[in-house]
């Protein structure tokens, strides 16, 4: 059952006589127990969608329904129906992760015992128990961000929105976080993950949409989209020590790109041995350093879709 339904949502901002279209005819559906990845680089319109779901912004046109309730007509309901981890680090002041998580749980109306149980469960899962009772002013950005996740996840309700949840978080705890996100969905919550870190999110999300300049460029089942994008292809990734024009594209190669000192070469899966041989030769000639063969990822598809500007500004 769909928990979040956006239909033909358009939202523009006016400032100094100029109109910017932040969302252009966006339609998205997120089901119960589904993890939905909302991808796009900076300024793509992701946070505008989040703010409209929370009722903080009113769309120019279109409808937004959360758990059967019309958020456009009744904007105050948005923040009661969706728990959110905001994009910015929440300034906790002297509040500790435990006390602020407890307050959030109580505001959402769960019992004190349940709040304590959930808080312990989440803190242990994310391995932040040692900071549970440390004042917010003394916490690092990563711990503040994880606390933000716990504040949204302690009493998730029908829908949870996570805006860039992994920013500032160390690599080990990132894995714990993705696992905690999966747990939320397992309990039946609809989870929206807003991020530009596609590489990290792509193994977790069930469905996804790519947003660019306010428009949805692609959406659907993540595995299916990756399958379509990859087809029967693979890619060679390598550290490039020369510019693109110094490389000769081998006859079996499909496309060769060098960007930000990284070479990417795509080819048919059967030609993997050829590709390794080619890479070794280029390395001997001093044109490449480390190289590896990998699968085509959603991120590759994303970069192809939104172009290199996105790769430079949003993904890297």
């Amino acid at each position: 059952m769909a928990v979040i339904e956006l239909d033909h949502v358009t939202k523009s901002y006016k400032s100094r006589g100029r109109t910017t279209l932040a969302n252009d005819d966006v339609s998205l559906h997120v089901d119960e127990g589904e993890i939905f990845g909302l991808f796009g680089h900076n300024g793509a319109g992701k946070t505008t969608i989040v703010n409209q779901l929370l009722g903080l912004l009113k769309p120019d046109s279109g409808s937004i329904v959360v758990a059967g309730q019309d958020i456009v007509k009744n904007r105050n309901l948005g923040r009661y129906l969706c728990s959110v981890q905001p994009q910015s680090k929440t300034p906790l002041g002297e509040l500790t992760p435990r006390s602020v998580t407890r307050v959030m749980g109580q505001l959402r109306g769960i019992s004190p015992e349940e709040v304590d149980r959930r808080t312990t469960e989440l803190f242990e899962k994310l391995d932040i128990m040692q900071w549970a009772d440390v004042q917010g002013t003394k916490l690092s950005g990563g711990v503040l961000r994880l606390t933000g996740f716990c504040m949204a996840a302690v009493a998730p309700g029908r829908a949870v929105i996570l805006d860039e949840p992994t920013n500032d978080v160390d690599p080990v705890r990132r894995r714990f976080l993705w696992s905690a996100i999966r747990d939320l969905a397992k309990d039946g919550t609809a989870v929206v993950v807003v991020t530009h870190s596609i590489r990290e999110a792509e193994n977790t999300v069930d469905t996804m949409a790519v947003l660019n300049e306010g428009k949805v460029l692609k959406q659907g089942n993540a595995r299916q989209i990756r399958g379509e994008a990859a087809g029967n292809r693979m890619k060679l990734e390598a550290v490039a020590k020369a510019t693109e024009d110094r490389f000769e594209v081998p006859s079996w190669g499909e496309s060769l790109k060098v960007a930000e000192a990284e070479l990417t070469l795509t080819f048919e899966r059967e030609l993997a041995t050829e590709a390794l041989k080619w890479a070794a030769e280029q390395r001997d000639r001093g044109l490449l350093a480390e190289y590896s063969l990998t699968e085509i990822t959603l991120e590759d598809m994303y970069i192809e879709l939104v172009g290199n500007r996105g790769a430079v500004e949003g993904v890297r």
Binding site: L56, R79, S88, T90, P91, L107, R108
Partner: peptide, 16 residues
């Protein structure tokens, strides 16, 4: 200060 650090936005998103 609360406006500039985003705390007001957080307050506005609370379910109260």
């Amino acid at each position: 200060g609360a406006k500039m650090t985003g705390y007001m936005d957080f307050v506005k998103s609370l379910p109260v």
